[in-house]
Design a protein around this nucleic acid. Structure first.
Lengths: 410, 410
DNA sequence: CGAGGATTCTTCAGTTACTAAACAAAGAAA
DNA sequence: TTTCTTTGTTTAGTAACTGAAGAATCCTCG
């Protein structure tokens, strides 16, 4: 069905553009070394990028004995992207520039049980406000990334948002988005193999292998919430026993805290007896606050959870031969300082490939908005990187194509 | 450093060749549909393959209203490859043709504590005998795949084998090789995402994602032996607690059986009190035999192990969104019938993406020699598939390049 | 200050791997 | 036989490279 298969100019252009972005500032010779292409090719590709206004020449480097290199930089404010993260507890909006830097950011209460149509209208309104707040022309915005825990359920919603905002919409998983956000924000090498451990209202992992995000055949990748950590443990909603989610997920932590009268009172848990609309995230935050203020029962509770997370992270690292593990998402934004040392200790002492290469465990510098930033980054990628690379391979089935994430809807 | 970056004719040629191999028999039009290339391109690529003697025209298909399709097939006996699997207990040799079909196969005792030089000489002799047994000319053999549990330790050994046999040698992990063997032998779709759960003297998993084998940045992929299944479990040699290997690996099963006097006697365990040279595999086989003959204690022991394996397999499937899981390796060749139903039940009831797509769990039809077959398949791949595809990307470090598996040494 | 080397960047002819489209060949249906 | 369908080949054209020559810029040293 779809178009030609050869690796066209488009992919080279995207690779060069991505190098310029990743490097921050680089010369044509630098691009020659980094890509393996010849100077002539780089010359023409760069000229095209400059003509489009995506890249600009910005001064010169020091001479190394001959002509000074002309330095190139991304023209950061040439294009923009919107990222929206639908969490149960909150909806986070960011507007980023071409470099993935956040230009504007707002956060509002979650949608709860509102009518879908009302939510669409609200999202469109809030996206409009976000854009207007910095006065960017609409035609400079490449699109809108919409990420959530179960993106497949938001397909129609995405279509509606597309109609309401007039922006092309890309759907994806929030954990995957968080990983892409980390990758895009630098800090992790361009070809690195890493996972973003995500904790929001639920748990997941975004996976990037050798610089390429891995989504799996049905987009259900990185379900570490259902990593088995006790074959005889309590039963999980997935049907199995002893999953990370039931043992140590945010909902489990909150439930355990609520069962502890003294802790409930000290932390001022809002959930209490009654099942409120979106209490897990709020209560988890309250427990984390209590822990940071030295409440030993809160600390013990979170450290217990962290030990389970550490075991799951180790499993993940061993299976995928990870180089980097980043903790992101709203819940890690709050409680990361408690989880981080526990995970680090586990992976330093028991990562199987540690003799071959170290594994770096760190907390995202922007954990709370990482999924939204990633959502915007996906838009940037899907606009700047070619849709499919390489040959289309068989399994010619695909009469009814499955929903594809991380690509523009329609 | 290394060569050009564009996707050259070589990769298309390899893709077409691989399609011919995978399909068994296919027409040019079939290749057009499968690749997305035009008829003209397929025409010239196929002509090249026929000229090289790798592909042959073999009759016609029924007409569908017009000219009958000329069917193409791999010229199976145009080239050969040798696969060698170094297990602690046994060394397995196979000679396969271009299609990956086993032409000759021998199996000898493991090397134990023999001198490396002696082992090299022995391997070279036995490879020679293997080749001579079917009278294939040396120059039709593409190379020798050498797979083992820790391939990095066999680098020098591989060089020596290369010198002794005169064949180019490719090193790789045995679990990865087993996965490639399964992939190559068909049964698993060309673009499928699957894992080969491997049990020999130890435990591992070979991973193929969307048709591409995943080796990780340091080749330490699929270490499911160190999947955590009990955060408070017994300590493992990797430094952690409750790893699959200590809870349910072959060595653990054998140890548990030896502690059971009645079972030891019934199964006739050779290990007994003393630590013999390579008893684990033999004893594991004895336990499996006893279980198949209805010994309830042996059955209970293996089923207990299977439950742990099932939990680890579920974790793996959930993280990678697997479509297929194949059990391979010598130990599954013997005990697969006991493990298979337990794993199947677990994944049918608790695989998180099961609503999106089914996961098929099956036993390899050639579990015992799968790693050796895979080793040969790696040679076929590394000869017929281009080294690197796409652009070489940055992280320009790599002054001292790390050892690369799955590619020819030198 | 100006020649000569070093380095960076551009230009341009040539190559490769494709596509598109016309054409030829072979069989089916009428 | 004529006409249609399908398969496969040939040919001219094109995109995206490479390689090599040349232009531009800067440094150094007499």
């Amino acid at each position: 069905m779809s178009g030609p298969a050869r690796v066209t100019h488009a992919s080279t252009r995207a690779a060069v553009l991505d190098l310029v972005r990743a490097a921050g500032m680089i010369s044509r010779v630098g691009l020659v070394n980094a890509t393996g292409l010849t100077g002539g090719t780089i010359s023409t590709v760069v000229r095209g990028l400059i003509d489009e206004g995506l890249v600009a020449e910005t001064g010169h480097a020091e001479s190394t004995g001959g002509k000074r290199r002309v330095m190139l930089q991304l023209n950061h404010f040439a294009r923009y992207a919107v990222g929206v993260h639908l969490d149960d507890a909150r909806i986070t909006y960011v507007l980023t520039n071409l470099g993935g830097a956040v230009v504007a950011r707002i956060s509002r209460a979650g949608a709860g049980a509102d009518e879908p149509a009302a939510v669409v209208a609200r999202v469109a309104r809030e996206v409009g406000a976000l854009i207007d707040s910095v006065g960017v022309e609409r035609d400079r915005i490449l699109g809108l990334g919409l990420v959530a825990a179960r993106p497949a359920e938001h397909h129609e919603f995405g279509r509606a948002v597309e109609r309401a905002t007039g922006l092309p919409v890309v759907l994806d998983n929030d954990a995957t988005a968080a990983a892409i956000g980390e990758h895009w924000s630098g800090g992790v090498g361009a070809t690195s193999t890493f996972a973003a451990l995500f904790m929001g209202s639920d748990v997941g992992a975004g996976i990037v292998l050798g610089g390429t995000t891995y989504r799996g055949p049905s987009g259900h990748t990185g379900e570490i919430g259902h990593t088995c950590l006790d074959v005889d443990g309590p039963r999980c909603r997935c049907g199995a026993r002893g999953c990370l989610e039931v043992l140590a997920g945010p909902a489990a932590v909150v439930e355990q805290a609520r069962a502890d009268r003294a802790l409930s009172r000290a932390a001022g848990l809002v959930g209490g007896r009654t099942r409120a609309a979106t209490p897990v995230a709020a209560d988890f935050a309250a427990i984390s606050r209590a822990a940071r203020q030295g409440n030993t029962r809160a600390v013990a509770l979170l450290e217990r959870s962290a030990r389970y997370f550490a075991a799951a992270a180790r499993t993940l690292a061993n299976v995928l031969d990870l180089e980097v593990l980043v903790l992101t998402g709203p819940s890690f934004a709050i409680a990361g300082s408690i989880y981080l040392p526990v995970l680090r200790a586990e992976l330093d002492s028991a990562f199987i490939a540690r003799d071959a290469h170290p594994i770096s465990v760190r907390l995202s510098p922007s954990a709370a908005s990482a999924p939204a930033i990633g959502a915007a980054a996906i838009v940037l990628q899907s606009e700047l990187v070619p849709r499919r690379q390489g040959l289309r391979l068989p399994d010619d089935l695909a009469a009814e194509e499955p929903p594809v994430f991380g690509q523009l809807v329609r």
